[in-house]
Simulated assay, not measured.
Amino acid sequence: MSFSDLRANVVALFTTSVLYGINAVTFFVCIKVLLGSRGRASSWRLIHYTMITTALVMFAVATLDIGVIFDRCIKIFIDEMPQRMTTFSGISNWWSIVEFSNTVVQTFIGDAILICRCLVIWNRRWKIVLGPAATCCIGTGCGIAAAAVGSTNFHPNNQEEIQPFIIPFLALTLVTNVATSSLIIFRIWNVGRRSTPYLVPQEAGGALPRAIRVTLEAGLLYTTAVLVLLITYSTGHHSQIIIGRALIQIIGIVFNSIISSRARQKGSLTVAPTTMLPLDAMVINQEVVVSHDPPDKQGRRIAERAKKNRVVLW
């Protein structure tokens, strides 16, 4: 391990600690939103346990990762320098395997949740998410293969054996995130564009633009982190240690922020039963004002078309 790696590990510990604090705050806000609505505790049968379990698992992975970083830094700076420079080289150390496994697990959960959200927004049209689902599964498989190769080849500097798996893993994760976020934004924008002429004035410019903004911000944060990690790993830059550890915390922050944004949605949002839609999915029903009384055929066609213009927000 070079001195640059030592400095990178120290910076990674500091950066991850700051992001872990943000992750912890957003996690508790997320749990509060999932357990209650408008300051009142939800009934046990209305709580979405899948989302709560997902939030707990992602926070547990983030906690494990920062614990491994802390333990590694202690061992690095307590051992003697000659031993430190030889023993802590390569990628086959147990903490490296655990850290990379945390990355694989966290990215898989984040991508799976994003794909599920896309599926819900597109009214459960499975063909829409087949591409992102395929890239997610293939990328996760590459990540598992990299962890398996790294854990079986116990010798220093075995980057050549695992690089053919890590680069596709990061690239496919990036493709999955970009494709899924684009599909979500396009769906919300398209529904809003078609429904705007039929909305009452109070609903124009309401929840749909906010949903697009939240999705865009979360997607940019996640995508940027994965892209920077891919570039730094491909070039062999030491900052890959920092970005790789920060990515785990960023995924948790993105997930918690999307869930927490539900509490800030107002206007024409109504809560659907949890047995039908995940996370008490919020449905925007576009209302129609028809000037004909009784409505003629054109008015009825407009009303029927507007009823179809509905989008489910996670």
Rank of each mutant, 00 (worst) to 15 (best):
F3S: 14
F3K: 07
L6V: 08
A8G: 04
A8D: 04
N9E: 07
A12V: 03
F14E: 02
F14H: 08
T15W: 00
N23K: 06
A24Y: 10
T26M: 08
F27T: 15
V29F: 10
L34A: 02
R38P: 00
R38Y: 04
R40C: 03
A41S: 13
S43T: 10
W44I: 07
M51S: 14
T53G: 15
A55Q: 04
V57H: 01
A60W: 00
V61T: 09
A62I: 04
G67C: 09
V68Y: 11
R72W: 09
C73W: 06
C73M: 00
I76Q: 03
F77S: 01
E80Q: 11
P82F: 05
R84Q: 15
T86V: 14
T87D: 12
T87A: 13
I91D: 08
S92F: 14
N93V: 08
F100V: 10
T103S: 10
V104N: 01
D111Q: 15
C116F: 11
C116W: 07
L119A: 05
R125D: 08
K127R: 14
V129P: 05
L130G: 10
G131S: 05
T135R: 06
C137W: 06
G143L: 01
A146F: 02
A146V: 00
S151N: 09
T152F: 00
N157L: 12
N157T: 12
N158I: 14
N158F: 03
P164L: 01
F165Q: 06
F169K: 03
T173I: 04
V175D: 05
S181A: 15
S181M: 08
F186N: 13
I188Y: 01
N190F: 08
V191T: 14
G192Y: 05
R194C: 06
T196V: 09
V200T: 15
R210W: 13
G219M: 15
L220Q: 05
L221I: 13
V226L: 14
L229Y: 10
Y233V: 05
T235K: 12
T235M: 13
H238F: 11
G252R: 00
V254H: 04
V254S: 02
I258M: 09
S261F: 03
S261Q: 05
K266Q: 14
K266N: 13
S268N: 11
V271N: 13
A272W: 07
A272P: 03
T274I: 11
M276Q: 15
P278A: 01
V283L: 10
I284D: 00
I284Y: 04
N285T: 11
Q286D: 09
D293R: 11
P295S: 15
D296S: 09
G299F: 12
K308F: 01
N309R: 07
V311P: 06
V312G: 00
